[in-house]
Design a protein around this nucleic acid. Structure first.
Lengths: 336, 336
DNA sequence: TTGTATGCGTTATCAT
DNA sequence: ATGATAACGCATACAA
């Protein structure tokens, strides 16, 4: 078993050629004019030795890492799993690899330190990392970066999803079923996605000629959803349907409905954003709006590799958004 | 804004010192005898320029990447999310970073090609990648590797969890509640974890002096769990409790119970392996056995960095395993 | 059609 | 207590 790693020089020796030739064969240099026979010898030698280029040397020479970074808040959140999948696929298409880090352990700053200089060609920031001094730090390091699913307050370097349209789809679904009192459990007031979903809700209600039902801030957690739904149910005129800002919150909301002795969807219909696997496993199965999360990740990597250093980007991803009807929505109880 | 990246030479120039000195200061070379005043100058220069070592150059020189790889089947599976968290934390403790790849897009072979040579110091293999020629390929590349949660058929290079004990905990919980007819929905016959959980079930039943209830292979999917549970319920003497090999399968099993017009836990108790967040959101909330998944990831990285090249490892991780009681288990219906 | 020379940024050995 | 130098493996401009 070969212990020493094989280098270009080894391959060149076996192929009776210079290292430069091997290098140009590997990199498919179009200006290389080589006779087929020689190329064969090179390829054979590569195969025989099982040669694979040393990325450190290559990267040092070309100052390209062929690696993209993706920083997320938490691996356990299935929303990010989808984004990762897309980003990984696009990176692979470019012959690059994706290194993902999470804020579970420490902040972005410490992560960047561990990464060092020159390890990645660009960084995707999903969720909402602490923005303070972020742009500066990354720019000083000369690393292209883009925020995913979150608009920066100061910098225009992001791609987001069309949350307004997603919210509209949800509301329209409820309206089509006959609901007229549609309430909204909103996400955390700080979150950019939450703001956009709420805006979409309001716009859709207006478009349908309906009065905005109560809007209650519920956060993105089951506990928040439960508390929010409890308030909604205690209100004077109980809504017959609720648009919830995300699935986690909807889970809590559903529990609150049950606790109140009511049934879903018989007394209250519920629809939430993001079509996670989990949604299908709840009982009743949760009606959701599917967002192109994988496409978001994919687009991020693409932009990273085509963007000029100082170019800005403020893009609303144009991907398929669709309503996935399940068992948590139905026509309202007729009490007329 | 500085555009050119700053190198050791720049720092040395500002500090009026040689590059070698800066390097040794950074790496805390104990043999370096430097006067405090000089060290201060160096540190100040580093700070002033915002210098960060170039990993490519360093890695080329030292042939250490300060990066570990983790290959998993799918990011969407929360089990791997936990493993990733642990592995990332341990890597961080070592000043390294973790690059995770998934089989979503392609196999391990193609992933290794994209990784190239010298990018990682070691590779963790979670789940069960195609084992054919795997060991050979990695060994030839000189990359230390370890399988996580899966015993290799031929090679002894793995760390697994104590699935037998987990199964025993689950069964003991049911027996303590008074159940005597405890069935088992097993995982896929090929999966190593499934085998161990089944063995644990059998041993625990024997230890309790109870006859092995029916054992049905159900796979690790909701569909499999539903089908398996349907068979269990159709059998002559219906079990009062079922130990299910994983949560996904349990979800299907729960649906099958409801479809049969029965209630959980009134007619059938259910307990499954792995305490995923999801378990708490089901209704009824699922009783589970928590396994130290994060510890598994952490241990993997540790072993990777201490193992000698040709050393083998066959370890059952000694971490906390505990039963998390929720609402899916209760005493059996008394029909005596 | 193929070979030569140089430098990427760092670490480590040896001088001074 | 600090400086000079070589080498890691590769890509590329240029020479032959």
């Amino acid at each position: 078993m070969k212990r020493d790693r094989v280098t270009l020089t080894d391959v060149a020796a076996i192929a009776r050629v210079d290292r430069a030739v091997v290098s140009r064969v590997i990199n498919k240099d179009p200006t290389l004019n080589i006779r087929p026979e020689t190329r064969e010898r090179v390829l054979a030698a590569i195969e025989q030795l099982g040669y694979r280029p040393n990325v450190a040397a290559r990267s040092l020479r070309t100052s390209r890492a062929h690696m993209f970074g993706l920083f997320i808040p938490d691996f356990a959140n299935p929303v990010y799993a989808e984004i990762i999948k897309g980003a990984e696929a696009e990176a692979a298409d470019q012959g690059s690899v994706l290194v993902t880090g999470s804020a579970t352990r420490a902040g972005l700053g410490e992560y960047m330190d561990r990464l060092g200089q020159g390890r990645i060609d660009g960084l995707l920031l999903a969720g909402a990392p602490d923005e303070a001094g972020l742009a500066g730090q990354l720019d000083r390091a000369g690393i292209p970066w883009i925020m995913l699913n979150h608009r920066g307050r100061t910098v225009r370097r992001y791609v987001i999803l069309d949350d307004e349209r997603a919210a509209a789809l949800a509301v329209e679904h409820l309206v089509r079923l006959g609901h007229r009192r549609v309430a909204h459990l909103a996400g955390p007031s700080g979150a950019d996605t939450a703001t956009r979903r709420s805006a979409g809700y309001s716009a859709a209600m207006r478009a349908a000629g309906l009065p905005e039902g109560p809007i209650v801030a519920a956060g993105y957690t089951p506990a928040g959803g439960a508390a929010g739904m409890a308030r909604l149910l205690a209100a004077g005129e109980r809504p017959t349907a609720v648009f919830v800002a995300n699935v986690a919150s909807a889970i809590g909301a559903m529990q609150a409905v049950r606790s109140a002795g009511l049934e879903i969807p018989r007394h209250v219909s519920i629809v939430a954003v993001h079509d996670l696997d989990l949604a299908g496993y709840l009982s009743p199965a949760l009606t959701t709006v599917r967002m192109p999360l994988a496409e978001l990740g994919r687009r991020g990597v693409t932009l990273l590799s085509v963007l000029k250093p100082d170019e800005t980007v403020a893009e609303v991803l144009d991907g398929p958004i669709e309503l996935i009807p399940r068992s948590s929505t139905a026509p309202p109880p007729d009490r007329s």
